[in-house]
Simulated scan of single mutants.
Amino acid sequence: MTEMEYGRRRQPLRLRDRNVAWVPPLLLLVGIVLLDLNTTERFRIITWIVLVPGSAAAICGVWTTAAFAVLAVMTYIGVDSAWPGQYQAGLGDFVLVALGGLMATIASGVRVRKEQQTLHILDIAETTRRTVLRPLPPRWAGLEQAGVYLAADVEARVGGDFYDIQPGPHGTRVLVGDVQGKGLGAVETAAALLGTFREAGYHEKDLATVAERLEIRMLRHRSHTTALGRDDGDRFATAVLIAFPEDAPDTIEIVNFGHEAPLAVGPRGVRELPSGDGLPLGLADLVGGVPPVRRVPLAADETLLLVTDGVTEARDRTGTFYPLAREIAPAGADLTGAEPGGTGPGALVRRVRDGVLRHSGGRLGDDTTAFAVRRIRAAEGEEREEGRLRS
């Protein structure tokens, strides 16, 4: 990564999209010079010019810092020479300014290198996140969707929350989940479950079989990590597996692995769908099998909202949990007019995201995911196709 590329990525002090990081050191230099020239010989501060490259090292690139170091030395010579010999700061202070500029340039190089390494790590984290949470088209396989993911550690960008949509010959399936724990181990588990979902969700006719495949994959993954000698062999994951049958446009099928109950949001308000009594993935052997498949109604004008516990367990300063159902209760009325055809997924997840951040004051205790999805009604599809043809 070149210094120019680094500067664009780091986004230093900017004004109207122009880099102005050089302005504070320059103003400091001018101020020191003017003050030195307009005070008496008892208040010589030209040596303070060593602060100029020092301040540049904190906010500017290496070459800019080096330029300020040279400028500081030249300015020191010029200003100090303007005083009578008995009042000049002398060679000792000159060495101090020169040495200070050199050290500032070295410090700037070290800082830039560390920040480049950090950007590289963040790039890797972003690539990992996109590999696990692949980008989804806003309208795909008969569904309109929107999702938002907020990492508790803003620098990490990756965690154990996951969601995906998988169309197939037996209808479209949706999976939303949350792996217990954090770090790369949680990311690996999420990737394993998503890989199985994408294959089983496409090939298997029965949703119960897809659920069994996910449970088996979780057990196999735990067995593998245990064999490697890692201490996360007891990891589990909560999840909601949903099917949108093509032959039943007003119903959905749900398998809930101990996850937060999905919410149906529409013009008539918010209702909680049955959560079931299932245990998380990896714990089915405690109850003798995976949770049952439940078929529940979902009206054409309702949007399905699924969240992880980072939403429902977000707290304010007094320790009060975020009241999700109450906060989105007006959404049916408020958002119906915002997006034609009903409560839009995009507006709904934005409402949840903004509400959680406002309620918690931006202090997230856990990774936070909100995922909303609804069927695309035939009338909407026809209207959009007509608009496309006219344009």
Rank of each mutant, 00 (worst) to 15 (best):
R10Q: 09
R14P: 00
V20A: 08
A21M: 06
W22S: 03
V30A: 15
I32R: 09
V33Q: 09
L37Y: 10
T39Q: 14
T39N: 14
E41A: 13
I45P: 08
I46H: 09
W48Q: 13
I49P: 12
V50E: 13
L51D: 10
V62P: 11
A67M: 13
V70M: 10
G85S: 14
Q88P: 02
G90N: 05
G90T: 09
D93V: 11
V97E: 12
A98T: 06
L99P: 00
G100H: 04
G100I: 03
A104I: 03
G109S: 13
G109T: 05
V112Q: 01
E115N: 10
T118E: 15
T118M: 15
I121G: 00
L122M: 15
D123W: 05
I124M: 12
A125I: 08
E126I: 05
T128K: 00
R130C: 00
L136E: 13
P137M: 08
P137K: 12
R139W: 02
W140N: 09
A141Q: 07
G142A: 02
L143R: 06
G147F: 04
A151R: 09
D153Y: 06
V154W: 04
E155K: 14
A156G: 07
R157K: 15
I165V: 15
G168M: 10
G171R: 07
G171W: 07
V174Y: 03
L175H: 07
V176D: 03
G177C: 05
V179L: 00
L193M: 10
L194V: 13
G195C: 07
G195R: 04
E199R: 10
A200G: 08
E204S: 12
E204N: 10
A211G: 15
R213I: 00
H221F: 13
R222W: 05
R222E: 12
S223G: 15
G229K: 07
D231E: 14
R235Q: 12
R235C: 08
F236Y: 13
A237K: 03
A237G: 06
A239T: 01
F244C: 05
F244Y: 09
P245I: 06
E246S: 14
I252Q: 05
F257E: 02
H259N: 06
A261K: 07
P262A: 01
L263A: 01
L263Q: 07
V265P: 04
V270D: 10
R271C: 11
P274F: 10
G276P: 02
D277Q: 12
L283T: 07
A284T: 08
D285P: 00
L286C: 03
R295N: 08
V296D: 06
D301Y: 03
E302P: 08
T303W: 00
L305M: 05
L306W: 05
V311Y: 11
A314S: 08
D316S: 05
F321W: 04
A325L: 05
E327M: 07
I328N: 00
A333D: 12
D334C: 07
G337S: 11
E339T: 15
T343H: 00
G344F: 07
R350L: 12
R350P: 00
V356P: 07
V356H: 06
G362S: 03
G362W: 02
D366F: 04
T368W: 05
T369E: 10
F371R: 06
A372Y: 01
A378T: 12
G381K: 14
G387W: 11
R388E: 14
